[in-house]
């Protein structure tokens, strides 16, 4: 009995230390976010003078919402948020469909050149986007498109200044295809064979069997597609000229004039981080389980 008590106390102490360590780490990782939110309430001079001390993390001094009203004076933040939301949603949803179908075809179907195609898909992973940005600009300026002119649909050349130029190049993604292919390959082939005996075609197998069994893979790809799509900066800076089409990250540049408006930068980053935080908090459990299940680190 005494041994049991001792063990229980020891276990409690160990748990206490673990929780203390975890709380410490959580606070440590929260520092940047706390600094951002707190600084968004301070004037520029105070932000700079508070840096280097604990005051940087505390809402003390000359606190106001002035930076937030300044953001609205400087940037059409609502429009930018709407644009990013639209572009990101379409890229994620279309990406899930296209890449999962490609992954399914590579993983489950038997066709000549399958291995070669998979190799090419993997090879695309080692090419940084920055190295192909300029050639991509060259291509998108020469692609055909339809535009509305004076009530008529007209044929035109060039995708600059549009939503499609922000969406279509980023739907197909080598890493997503590879991840889906890997995940689908863990589903026993016997299930396919049973379904085919029952008269199912490849699309039915994909839709009725592979997709429902691959929740973690879909969640992982959704996260890994969402973040870069939301954070797009270089590409829209190059190909979007109309302010009405710009995404949120391009808006960051609005604050870097001869002198940087740091308070407004913090207010703006707080505003554009909020949707990401909401998504992560809402789907936290699914994200953690999906990342654990797929073995992918973000």
């Amino acid at each position: 009995m005494a041994v049991d008590m001792g063990e229980r106390v020891l276990r409690r102490r160990r748990r206490l230390w673990i929780y203390l360590a975890m709380t410490g780490l959580a606070v440590f990782f929260l520092f940047p976010l706390v600094f951002m939110f707190v600084s968004s309430l301070k004037p520029d001079g105070q932000i700079l003078s508070d840096v280097g001390g604990w005051r940087a993390f505390l809402p003390v001094g000359d606190i106001s919402l002035g930076n937030y009203s300044g953001v609205f004076d400087r940037v059409p933040v609502g429009r930018f948020l709407l644009n990013s939301l639209f572009v990101t949603t379409v890229v994620v949803v279309a990406g899930l469909v296209v890449n999962s179908m490609a992954g399914f075809a590579i993983s489950r179907m038997r066709w000549t050149g399958r291995g070669l195609v998979l190799s090419v898909v993997i090879a695309t992973l080692i090419v940084p986007f920055e190295t192909i940005a300029v050639p991509m600009v060259y291509w998108v300026t020469r692609l055909p498109t339809l535009v509305f002119e004076n009530g008529w649909i007209a044929y035109d050349i060039g995708w600059l200044d549009s939503y499609e130029v922000q969406i279509i190049p980023f739907i197909a993604n080598g890493f997503s295809v590879f991840l889906f292919a890997q995940y689908f390959s863990t589903i026993p082939a016997a299930i396919d064979e049973a379904a085919r005996i029952d008269g199912a075609g490849w699309f039915t197998i994909y839709r009725r069997i592979a997709v429902p069994l691959s929740g973690p893979a879909f969640a992982t790809v959704a996260i890994l597609t969402f973040l870069p799509a939301w954070n797009q900066y270089l590409w829209p800076s190059m190909v979007v000229q109309d302010e009405d089409l710009r995404p949120v990250m391009v808006g960051m540049q609005y604050f870097f004039q001869e002198n940087t408006a740091w308070g407004e930068v913090m207010a703006y980053t707080s505003m554009i981080t909020l949707p990401v935080l909401v998504v992560f908090l809402a789907f936290q459990r699914a994200f953690v389980s999906s990342v654990a299940a797929s073995g992918v680190k973000g």
């Binding site: 600009v137 060259y138 300026t141 600059l160 800076s237 190059m238 000229q241 540049q253 870097f256």
Partner: peptide
């Protein structure tokens, strides 16, 4: 345009 990305926008537009 924001100043930080202005030259990129002009260069791209010139190419197009």
């Amino acid at each position: 345009f924001p100043q930080g990305s202005y030259n990129d926008a002009v260069t791209t537009a010139a190419a197009a």
